[in-house]
C-alpha cells in the first residue's frame, strides 16, 4: 500500500529543509567559483588576456582593469587566462547588491563587490515578515526561472521566511525580473509593475536582467533592468545565480541574514 510507504519514508527522512540561514550555508560546487576578486595591482601593464576571452565584454582594460560582475556569466575563462592571479574566484556565493556599480571590481572600485545592505526600517516593517512577489520573465531562458522555482521546494522552503511568489500582481509587494527584456515583453513588464500596489520593491535576477547578459551586445541590443523605468532595489548576479545566491540576496534585503546591519 503506497500510503504506508509514503508515511514510512516521510518519517525516515525527517525535515529536508536546510539549516541555512540559522546554520551554515551549503557550499557551492567546487567548480562554480562564486564571486570574483580582482586585484588590479597584479595586472601586467598592457595585458588584455582576460578581456580577450570574455564572452560578454564584462572586462574593460584602461588605466586599470575593471570587471563588471553584472555582465559576467562566471564562465571562468578570465581567471583561466590570467597569468598573474589578478582575477581569482573566491567561492563566495554572495552576489547581491543594491546598485549595479557595486558589482564592479578592480581599480578604484576595489578588489571585491559591495554587498547589499538591508532596505530601510519602514519598508522592512511593512514587508519583512510577509513578502509576496510577482515574477516576470522577459526573455529569460528558463534557467533563472528554474532556480527561482527551486526556492519553493522542500530543501529551500522559501515560505518559512514569509516569502511567496503569487499569481497576480494585485496580490504582490514586489516584482522579480528575469531575462534581458525583449521588445515584445516590454509592455507586459510595464503593465505588471504598474499593477503592483505600492509601496513595492523590484528585484533583478541573472546576468540578462542585470545587463542583457549574452544579449547585451550591440546586435541584440537588450539591456535588462537598466533599459526600463522601474526603480530596482536589488540586483543578483549569475548565469543563472545559484539558488543560494538568490535566497541570500533576498534575505539581505529583508535584513534576515545574520551579521548584516538591520
Amino acid at each position: 500500500m503506497y500510503t504506508l510507504e509514503i508515511l514510512a519514508r516521510r518519517l525516515r527522512l525527517g525535515s529536508q529543509t536546510m539549516a541555512y540561514p540559522r546554520g551554515p550555508a551549503p557550499s557551492l560546487p567546487d567548480r562554480h567559483g562564486g564571486a570574483l576578486r580582482l586585484d588590479s595591482a597584479r595586472c601586467t601593464p598592457g595585458c588584455t588576456a582576460c578581456a580577450d576571452v570574455c564572452p560578454t565584454a564584462a572586462i574593460q582594460v584602461g588605466a586599470t582593469t575593471v570587471l563588471d560582475q553584472g555582465r559576467c556569466l562566471f564562465c571562468g575563462a578570465c581567471h583561466e587566462q590570467c597569468g598573474t592571479g589578478a582575477i581569482q574566484p573566491t567561492g563566495d556565493h554572495r552576489l547581491a547588491v543594491r546598485h549595479l556599480a557595486d558589482l564592479r571590481i578592480g581599480g578604484d572600485y576595489g578588489a571585491e563587490l559591495r554587498r547589499a545592505e538591508a532596505m530601510g526600517s519602514e519598508l522592512r516593517s511593512l514587508l519583512g515578515r510577509s513578502l509576496k512577489l510577482r515574477q516576470v520573465s522577459a526573455g529569460g531562458c528558463n534557467a533563472c526561472e528554474a532556480d527561482l522555482n527551486v526556492l519553493g521546494t522542500i530543501g529551500w522552503d522559501l515560505g518559512r521566511f514569509g516569502i511567496q511568489f503569487v499569481a497576480s500582481p494585485r496580490h504582490a509587494d514586489g516584482l522579480v525580473l528575469t531575462g534581458p527584456v525583449t521588445d515584445n515583453m516590454r509592455l507586459g513588464l510595464e503593465k505588471t509593475w504598474a499593477a503592483i500596489p505600492g509601496p513595492k520593491i523590484a528585484i533583478a535576477v541573472g546576468a540578462c536582467a542585470l545587463s542583457g547578459g549574452p544579449y547585451g551586445s550591440q546586435t541584440a541590443g537588450l539591456h535588462g533592468a537598466p533599459g526600463t523605468d522601474i526603480p530596482f532595489d536589488l540586483y543578483i548576479a549569475g548565469c543563472p545565480p545559484h539558488p543560494l545566491t538568490i535566497l541570500e540576496g533576498i534575505l539581505r534585503l529583508l535584513g534576515k541574514v545574520p551579521g548584516i546591519d538591520t
Binding site: 570574455c54 526573455g139 525583449t182 515584445n184 507586459g188 551586445s217 546586435t219 541584440a220 537588450l222
Partner: peptide, 16 residues
C-alpha cells in the same frame, strides 16, 4: 514574447 534575436546575434557575435 521571448524573441531575443538569438540567431542574428550569433552571426554578429565575436567567437567568445
Amino acid at each position: 514574447y521571448q524573441h531575443r534575436g538569438a540567431e542574428a546575434a550569433f552571426l554578429a557575435a565575436p567567437p567568445a
